[in-house]
Design a protein around this nucleic acid. Structure first.
Length: 419
RNA sequence: GGAGAGAUGGCAGAGUGGUCGAUUGCGGCGGUCUCGAAAACCGUUAUACCCGAAAGGGUAUCGGGGGUUCAAAUCCCCCUCUCUCCGCCA
């Protein structure tokens, strides 16, 4: 979330951001924050003053009692003050509730480099790498290749669970596992990430820390009768590892990675990408998370993209890097680069990684700070996250890009030792 | 699942109704000493909010929520989590 004081003194900048995100409808709510905030403070000042009176008078009572005096009248005086305090506290609570409701729903500020635009049509291609493969035959889509080669059992997955689930089998399961190990090895050995296996189920506070809750509850799977949610990405547990902590300056930057399955309800995407491996309720992903000093986050984002795209370079698959426009940038992110991989079978580029700089937005929600030595002050860290990469989509990119005329496919060189 | 114990500042660990935001130790930071370091000694060291130009002042916070009281880290209730023993179990 944004700093309440910042919003109050920069309303126009926040409104500008909301317009750029195509969410101008939030502007009146945002502006109401200042009103509530000021009103709240007035009550707070009154309340603090009364509490001060209460505290000093109460202390006097202790002294009076010790010297054997009568405390009745003073005691009644304090009771009257307390009644007044109770009323004011209730008022403050009401203001806080109103403020939080709005504040937790306001998206992050956008980096000035973010392109203008309402939706993905305005995303800007920054650069690309490699070449589209030239086939002398019509390229098959990955679902056909997966079926033909016995890598995935789509039908039985439906029997087991339903639509948008897959059952990897034989070499398919092995390839998926090989990719996970390959990605983790590259990031740990070459990019110096620390590896984790986090819980796949987290609580409400953790989901709030990274921004999934309260606003995007319908995108999550929630466990019945528990206040637990299935993680939609390892970004959630990894980023929250240090929630409510004050780190030493020497501890940062932190580079964390984890493989986890990711669970998404995909509410609102009925009919989209119903075939194959593009959009699933459960998919595998290797995630990269960085916790860094504010002055480093911009350059760390560029590095993060490089680390993620390294995987595709090693697999030798063509892709392009896209800077998301304002309307397409996620709630918690100030700036996002997508890596879009080329899929010859689908004749399209598809997102395979999303790398975001969340700056202090998540850090403020989750309470992740560090103590700066030169000033002795605590400051919010900046957090970044990126897929490195979505495993299932990498799987299908390999199938489509490495397919052969006979309907089979070959294996990228770097994966051979993992199979 | 049964029985018991516990949750206090970066960490360890005192504190059972008032002068306690909290003894002390360790760690951190600054200093004295030293060529330098260690040791020793001295000082300092929580977070958030509010008022203030600042100095400074106020308020809240001892796992979370509620209650008793003029007054709660301390008493009562509920919840969460941790530990020990027993049972079950990958």
């Amino acid at each position: 979330m944004l700093d309440l004081k910042f919003i109050s003194s920069n309303k126009e900048a926040v409104a500008e951001m909301l317009r750029k995100r195509n969410q101008a409808s939030l502007i009146p709510e945002m502006e109401s924050l200042t009103v509530h905030y000021n009103a709240r403070n007035e009550v707070q000042i009154k309340c603090d003053d009364l509490r001060n009176q209460r505290n000093t008078t109460s202390k006097k009572i202790g002294l009076i009692k010790m010297s054997g005096g009568d405390i009745n009248s003073v005691s009644n005086e304090v009771k009257a003050i307390n009644a007044e305090i109770a009323g004011l506290e209730q008022e403050i609570g009401q203001y806080d509730a109103k403020i939080d409701k709005v504040l937790y729903g306001i998206p992050n500020l956008l980096d000035e480099k973010v392109p203008e635009g309402k939706d993905e049509a305005s995303n800007r291609v920054v650069r690309s790498w490699g070449e589209k493969p030239a086939f002398s035959f019509p390229a098959l889509a990955h679902w056909d290749l997966a079926e033909k080669n016995g890598l995935i059992d789509f039908k039985r997955a439906v029997k087991l669970s339903g639509a948008r689930f897959v059952l990897y089998r034989d070499a398919g399961a092995k390839l998926e596992r090989a990719l996970i190990n390959f990605m983790l090895d590259v990031h740990c050995r070459e990019h110096h990430y620390k590896e984790f296996i986090p819980p796949f189920i987290v609580n409400e506070k953790t989901m709030t820390g990274t921004g999934q809750l309260p606003k995007f509850k319908e995108d999550l799977f929630k466990l019945e009768n528990y206040n637990y949610y299935l993680i939609p990405t390892a970004e959630v547990p990894l980023t929250n590892i240090h929630s409510d902590e004050i780190l030493n300056e020497d501890d940062v930057p932190l580079y964390y990675t984890a493989y986890t399955p990711c669970f998404r309800s995909e509410a609102g995407s009925w009919g989209k990408d119903t075939r194959g491996l593009i959009r699933l309720h459960q998919f595998n992903k290797v995630e990269l998370v960085k916790i860094v000093k504010p002055e480093d986050s911009a350059s760390e984002l560029e590095k993060l993209v490089n680390e993620a795209e390294k995987i595709l370079q090693l697999l030798n698959i063509h892709y392009r890097i896209v800077a998301l426009c304002g309307g397409d940038t996620g709630f918690s992110s100030s700036m996002t680069y997508d890596i879009e991989v080329w899929l010859p079978g689908m004749n399209a580029y598809k997102e395979i990684s999303s790398c975001s700089n969340c700056r202090d937005f998540q850090a403020r929600r989750a309470g992740i700070r560090f103590k700066r030595k030169s000033t002795g002050k605590t400051e919010l860290v900046h957090t970044l996250n990126g897929s490195g990469l979505a495993v299932g989509r990498t799987f299908l990119a390999i199938l489509e890009n490495y397919q052969t005329q006979d309907g089979g496919f070959s294996l990228p060189e770097v994966l051979k030792k993992y199979m």
